[in-house]
């Protein structure tokens, strides 16, 4: 439907002349001096003008498509480069002339090394993945539950100080998180909470913005439903679970996804508070060393320029692919929810 309108508009935008053309043609027809008429027959003129318009439109379209294609290629290039680099061997990656396909054979072993090197605590993928999943699931589930009940209270219930409290919560969004991150760091270190899961989960359970978003969503549900439910003997909590939650399911899905993605991408807090690498998260893992420390790949390097302690880009790209893959899968399957959530909340992940 929208496309069709654009189509119509397209024709209008590129064909302003035909409207003038018939007018001028008519003028020529009725003009007392016939010289112009004999010189350029009307019929021919119109056709030529239409043709010219068509060519012009095609040229403009070609430019638009070329522009978009360049943009699309540039948007996609880093992903392509990341994948092919992760499948090259380090010699090929470093070759002076870059290749756009792994010509010296596909090296799946890069992934094997990145995922399995348990002797190097920094690269202990299994532990890191477990950490990320445990923290991600717990903080998402508990966080969403807290968001739902808080948003419900602000949307539907009456209690003294409700508006003041809500204003206070919203006001904290103005303050940069760094300010309370330092206090939180000092406080939780004081409690010796460092290197635990709880310190990764608790401080980030409450999300004021998602509460605000969901509250607005809840408030759109008509009051009559609430009254009907009350008459039918549903408690506040029952109403919330049986009526509100199903009605706002799309927003809840968006919030859940974004919260999980937020945990997946969290970097600075785990790095600060959990200085033991086996308690860190997957994004911290990506910044690790990624060396061929056991010499599995490049031991006895014939060219003598890849050492066992050197950080290898091909291995790092394999790690980068591992971190990006779940996000990609989520994006493909839940694009609608994620895009809606992000366009509403204005935050990225």
């Amino acid at each position: 439907m929208a496309n069709k309108q654009i189509d119509d508009k397209q024709q209008n935008v590129t064909n302003p002349a035909p409207e003038q053309q018939p007018a001028s043609a008519a003028e020529t027809n009725f003009a007392p001096i016939g010289a112009a008429l004999e010189e350029a027959p009307t019929q021919f003129d119109v056709e030529r003008a239409i043709k010219r318009q068509k060519t012009l439109r095609i040229v403009k379209d070609v430019f638009v498509y070329i522009f978009l294609t360049i943009c699309a290629v540039l948007a996609f290039l880093p992903f392509y480069w990341m994948v092919i680099t992760s499948l090259k061997n380090e010699w090929e990656y470093r070759a002076i002339t870059p290749t756009f396909f792994p010509t010296q054979g596909v090296v799946w072993k890069n992934y094997e090394i990145v995922l399995s090197s348990t002797d190097n605590s920094q690269n202990n993928f299994g532990q890191i993945l477990v950490n990320t999943l445990v923290v991600g699931l717990l903080s998402t589930v508990i966080g969403v539950i807290i968001t739902v009940i808080t948003a419900y209270a602000f949307a539907r219930m009456n209690f003294k100080g409700k508006n003041a409290l809500f204003a206070l919560m919203l006001a904290t969004m103005m303050i940069p998180g760094e300010m309370y991150t330092i206090s939180n760091y000092q406080m939780t270190r004081g409690w010796e909470w460092n290197n635990t899961y709880i310190v990764l989960i608790l401080p980030f359970l409450v999300s004021v913005y998602y509460t605000y978003l969901l509250r607005n969503n809840f408030m759109q549900i008509p009051d009559s439903l609430y009254q009907a439910a009350k008459v039918d003997g549903l408690s506040d909590f029952g109403y919330l679970v049986k009526v509100m939650v199903p009605l706002t399911a799309p927003t809840l899905v968006s919030i859940t996804l974004l919260k999980f993605i937020g945990t997946w991408n969290s970097y600075i807090w785990p790095r600060l508070i959990n200085n033991d690498e086996s308690w860190q998260m997957i994004t911290n893992w990506v910044t690790g060393g990624f060396t061929d420390m056991n010499g599995v790949l490049y031991n006895g390097d014939v060219f003598q320029w890849i050492s066992n302690t050197e950080s290898l880009t091909t291995l790092r790209m394999a790690a980068v692919c591992m971190v990006s893959l779940p996000l990609f899968v989520l994006f493909i399957f839940c694009r609608k929810y994620i895009m809606r959530g992000v366009s509403k909340s204005g935050t990225k992940g």
Binding site: T85, V286, R316, M317, V323, S324, L327, L330
Partner: peptide
């Protein structure tokens, strides 16, 4: 590029 991990894509 919408859903990316900035640490990961920064490395790329």
């Amino acid at each position: 590029p919408y859903l990316t991990n900035s640490l990961a894509m920064g490395a790329v």
